[in-house]
């Protein structure tokens, strides 16, 4: 299923979306969801951590894509465009969450993965996630996109609108900080 969907070209999806008639549009949008849902979900999940939150954010991301598809000019690839929406949605969610926590005088530093029924990592993976939560937003984004999503720097640059050189520097700093955090925690 995944292989078949991956073989569907963005041009075919866009062609359906731009056809007149609801049936073609629905078919096109469903294909778009099926092709990109997993990649976008995991990108968002690694940022917001909780499944329920990730589910809300990924749905909002596709709704935004639906509303904005008319304005998609094809200057970037469909995937880059969707990734940018997903990133913005996730960051907006995190900022709101941070504000809510601040208003509630919650001194907690984010989501508790140990209490998450949908987290099945070992101690080292837990430390890695905790280290990621300590990073500045931009470094965390870059690290996730490079390390987990294995995105080329050129694609990350298009999504985050940052030069490749700056991205490589961010990635390098992030990797060093994570390594130091894990070493200090004694998990290595």
């Amino acid at each position: 299923m995944g292989t078949i969907l991956a073989a569907i070209k963005d041009e075919e999806i866009l062609s359906l979306l731009l056809q007149k008639g609801a049936t073609a549009f629905e078919r096109g949008f469903r294909l778009l969801i099926e092709k990109y849902q997993e990649r976008l979900y995991w990108h968002i999940r690694r940022l917001v951590l909780d499944h329920e939150d990730a589910n809300d954010v990924v749905q909002n991301c596709f709704i935004k894509a639906y509303r904005g598809i008319e304005g998609f000019e094809g200057k970037s690839s469909l995937y880059t465009w969707l990734y940018r929406i997903a990133t913005n949605e996730a960051l907006t969610f995190l900022n709101k969450q941070k504000k809510r926590n601040a208003e509630a005088l919650d001194s907690g530093n984010g989501f508790d993965l140990t209490a998450d029924p949908y987290f099945d990592g070992d101690d080292l993976q837990l430390k890695l996630q905790q280290a990621l939560q300590q990073l500045p937003e931009k470094q965390r984004l870059v690290f996730n996109m490079r390390y987990f999503d294995e995105m080329p720097y050129g694609d990350i640059s298009a999504v985050l609108d940052t030069s490749v050189g700056a991205l490589k520097a961010s990635y390098h700093h992030a990797a060093k900080k994570i390594e130091a955090f894990i070493r200090e925690s004694g998990a290595y």
């Binding site: 629905e26 949008f29 469903r30 969801i33 099926e34 849902q37 997993e38 979900y41 995991w42 999940r45 690694r46 499944h51 589910n55 990924v58 749905q59 596709f62 709704i63 949908y118 987290f119 099945d120 990592g121 070992d122 993976q125 837990l126 996630q129 987990f148």
Partner: peptide, 19 residues
Amino acid sequence: GTPFQVPTDYFQSLPDDLM
């Protein structure tokens, strides 16, 4: 591999929910 999991059939039902 990812340490995160999703509920059973989550990605099968997501397109329908979204549509």
